[in-house]
């Protein structure tokens, strides 16, 4: 199926790139046998809406949706998926972790979010999830916070308010980007009314992909960041598949 771009073409967020292939310059680089290298596919989980369109479009049934909820990463690049799953978030360095590991207070700023990321962020405070037991709490004021949790692509109309809120959080501070919009602008990344995600305005420490991310994915991200789970560099299971 070399040269097929069906998945890339249907993706509403342009999250899929086909790298290399017979026609491409890249294909001959480091290619000793002289045969053209096969094209590779790269999925940007930071844009992905998890909408299933690529799977449905693939004529070779080569794509499947995984059931692994662990998706959060520490860098933007770690969300670029090749043959392997995302390189999962590692904990904060020791000094910062000592500060936040047992008590992390977050101010949530919705900056163009559609209220789905907000809802599944908020649900973690209900009794079914109870993030309070891990020492994590959403607080009312940035002055009381250790960091920001940002949703939405950061609309131009929220840019100043986000900046002021960030500045009002005492240092050292963390930023967590939740959802495709906050990571990359997501579906909205070409709209002139937005900035292309939180990273355009403030430094991001944790990326939690999804549209919206499942509450488990958000919680998993928090706990990895704080070193409560995980440890050495881990990769999410790209092979696991549930219907």
């Amino acid at each position: 199926m070399d040269g097929c771009r069906a998945c890339a073409e249907v993706c509403p967020a342009d999250a899929i790139r086909i790298v290399g292939g017979a026609e491409s310059k890249e294909s001959t680089r480091g290619n000793e046998g002289g045969r053209p290298k096969k094209s590779r596919m790269q999925i940007d989980l930071g844009r992905c809406l998890f909408c299933d369109e690529c799977r449905a479009a693939c004529p070779a049934d080569a794509l499947a949706c995984g059931g692994d909820y662990r998706l959060a990463t520490r860098t933007r690049e770690d969300l670029l998926l090749g043959a392997e799953g995302p390189r999962l978030a590692v904990a904060l360095e020791d000094k910062t972790r000592r500060l936040f590991g047992r008590s992390l207070k977050l101010r949530v700023v919705s900056a163009g979010g559609c209220n789905a990321c907000e809802a599944d962020t908020n649900v973690l405070t209900t009794i079914g999830w109870d993030i309070g037991r891990f020492g994590i709490q959403y607080v009312a004021a940035p002055r009381h916070a250790d960091g920001l949790l940002i949703t939405g692509p950061v609309t131009t109309n929220m840019r100043l308010a986000l900046r002021k809120t960030y500045d009002a959080v005492p240092s050292p501070k963390l930023v967590i980007a939740v959802g495709a919009c906050a990571i990359s602008g997501g579906l909205y990344r070409e709209q002139p009314e937005q900035m292309g995600g939180a990273g355009a305005e403030v430094p991001v420490d944790l990326y939690i992909p999804g549209c919206p991310p499942h509450p488990l994915t958000i919680l998993d991200g928090f706990l990895r960041l704080l070193g409560r789970i995980g440890g050495v560099r881990e990769t999410a299971g790209s092979g696991s598949c549930e219907p």
Binding site: V10, P12, C51, G113, C114, N115, A116, L187, C211
Partner: peptide, 13 residues
């Protein structure tokens, strides 16, 4: 291809 997800996120709830 963007129309459907725009609708689904116009008001995401």
């Amino acid at each position: 291809k963007r129309t459907m997800p725009f609708m689904e996120t116009a008001a995401g709830d």
